[in-house]
C-alpha cells in the first residue's frame, strides 16, 4: 500500500493520479480527475436541454407516485366515511360481535362473525393445502431439482399464478368436489368451505413456493457446504440448515398467501355457497366477507340503506385484516432475518 491520500502534498497529487487502480490512486480520484488530467478549457456544463428533460421526467414521476398514493387514500377515505354512516345506524358492537348475518333479508341482522368465521375457515383450509405443498415444491426447486428442471418448473409455477381465479372457482365446483372430495367425504354438499378452501389453497401454492424458493436460494452456499462437511444428508441440510436460515422469507410467504386467501373472491363466490353461518363444519356451505360483497352487488340495492352501507363496513374490516397480516409479515421478516457476513 502506498501512502494514504491525506498525506500526499497537494502539488504531487497528479503523480499518484496516474497509477491506475492503485489504492492510492483510487482514494484520491476525485481530486486527481480535475488536478491531473483535465485540460484547462474542458466544458463540463452538458447540453442545455438535458437539465430541462431531467426536470420534466422528475415531475412526471412525482405525479405518478402521488396519484397512486392519492387513489389509495381516497379508497380508504370512502370506506371509512360510508362505514361511519353505517355505524351511526347499527352499533359497532352489534356488528363486531353479532352471530347472525342476514343483511339482505327482510329483517336484517348485521352480526359479522359468520362472515369472519367463513373467511377464517376457508383461509385455514387453504393454508393447510398451500403451506405443505408450496414449501415442499420450494425445497424441491431450490435444493433437489437439476438446473434444467428448475428452469422449466419455476416459470411454469409462476404461470399457474396467472390463471384467472374464476377458473379455479369452477374447477372447484366441477372437479375438486365431485371427483375428489365426495369420495373422501360422502356427506359434502354442492357448496362447501372445504371445496372452496382447497381451490384457494391450490391458487396460493405458487405464491408460497416461489417466494420460499427465492429466500432459500439466497441462503449462502457456504452454509450448505458446512452442513455436508459434517456428514449431513441432503434432506438434513435442506430441512435443518436451509429452511431455518431462510425462515423469515418462508414465513413471509405464508402470511402473504394468507392475506391473498382472505381477500380471494371469485373462488368463494362460486364454490363456498352463500349461506352465512357460524359453524365449525367445513363440509357446510359458508359465506366469506368477500363472498357477501359479491352477492350484495349482484342483487338490487338502494344506495344509502343499511344493507348498502354494510358493504363498506365489511370492506373496512377486510382492509384491516389484510393490513394486519401485511404488517405482521414485515415484522417477521425483520425479526428473523439473519445477517450473513
Amino acid at each position: 500500500m502506498g501512502p494514504s491520500g491525506d498525506t500526499i502534498p497537494a502539488n504531487r497529487e497528479h503523480e499518484f493520479g496516474e497509477i491506475p487502480g492503485s489504492a492510492t490512486g483510487r482514494g484520491i480520484a476525485p481530486i486527481t480527475a480535475l488536478g491531473g488530467r483535465a485540460p484547462v478549457n474542458l466544458d463540463l456544463s452538458g447540453h442545455k436541454s438535458r437539465g430541462m428533460q431531467e426536470r420534466i421526467v422528475g415531475v412526471l414521476l412525482w405525479i405518478c407516485g402521488a396519484l397512486s398514493l392519492l387513489t389509495t387514500a381516497g379508497i380508504i377515505f370512502v370506506l371509512f366515511q360510508q362505514a361511519f354512516v353505517f355505524f351511526q345506524q347499527i352499533p359497532i358492537t352489534d356488528f363486531l360481535f353479532g352471530t347472525t348475518w342476514t343483511a339482505l333479508f327482510k329483517t336484517p341482522l348485521y352480526g359479522v362473525l359468520p362472515l369472519v368465521s367463513g373467511t377464517l375457515m376457508i383461509t385455514l383450509i387453504a393454508m393447510l393445502v398451500a403451506i405443505p405443498l408450496g414449501l415442499m415444491s420450494a425445497i424441491y426447486l431450490s435444493e433437489y431439482a437439476p438446473n434444467r428442471a428448475r428452469e422449466i418448473l419455476k416459470p411454469a409455477l409462476e404461470l399457474l399464478a396467472g390463471i384467472p381465479t374464476i377458473v379455479y372457482g369452477f374447477f372447484a365446483v366441477t372437479f375438486i368436489r365431485p371427483d375428489i372430495l365426495v369420495k373422501i367425504f360422502p356427506g359434502i354438499g354442492p357448496f362447501s368451505a372445504l371445496s372452496a378452501g382447497v381451490a384457494v389453497g391450490i391458487l396460493t401454492i405458487p405464491l408460497v413456493a416461489s417466494l420460499s424458493e427465492d429466500s432459500m436460494r439466497a441462503v449462502p452456499r457456504a452454509l450448505r457446504e458446512g452442513g455436508y462437511a459434517l456428514g449431513a444428508t441432503k434432506l438434513e441440510v435442506s430441512w435443518q440448515i436451509v429452511v431455518p436460515a431462510a425462515i423469515s422469507g418462508i414465513i413471509a410467504s405464508f402470511i402473504l398467501a394468507m392475506s391473498r386467501a382472505v381477500g380471494e373472491t371469485m373462488i368463494v363466490a362460486l364454490a363456498a355457497g352463500s349461506k352465512a353461518q357460524l359453524t365449525g363444519n367445513p363440509l357446510e356451505p359458508m359465506q366469506t366477507m368477500t363472498g357477501f360483497i359479491v352477492q350484495a352487488f349482484s342483487g338490487d340495492m338502494v344506495v344509502g340503506t343499511p344493507p348498502y352501507l354494510s358493504l363498506f363496513a365489511v370492506g373496512l374490516l377486510l382492509f384491516f385484516i389484510t393490513l394486519a397480516l401485511n404488517l405482521i409479515s414485515q415484522k417477521v421478516v425483520g425479526r428473523f432475518r439473519e445477517a450473513y457476513e
Binding site: A222, L223, E225, G226, G227, A229, I241, A245, E338, Y340
Partner: peptide, 10 residues
Amino acid sequence: MVFQKPNPFP
C-alpha cells in the same frame, strides 16, 4: 472440513 471463510450456521 473447515472452510476458508468461517461459515457458522445461523
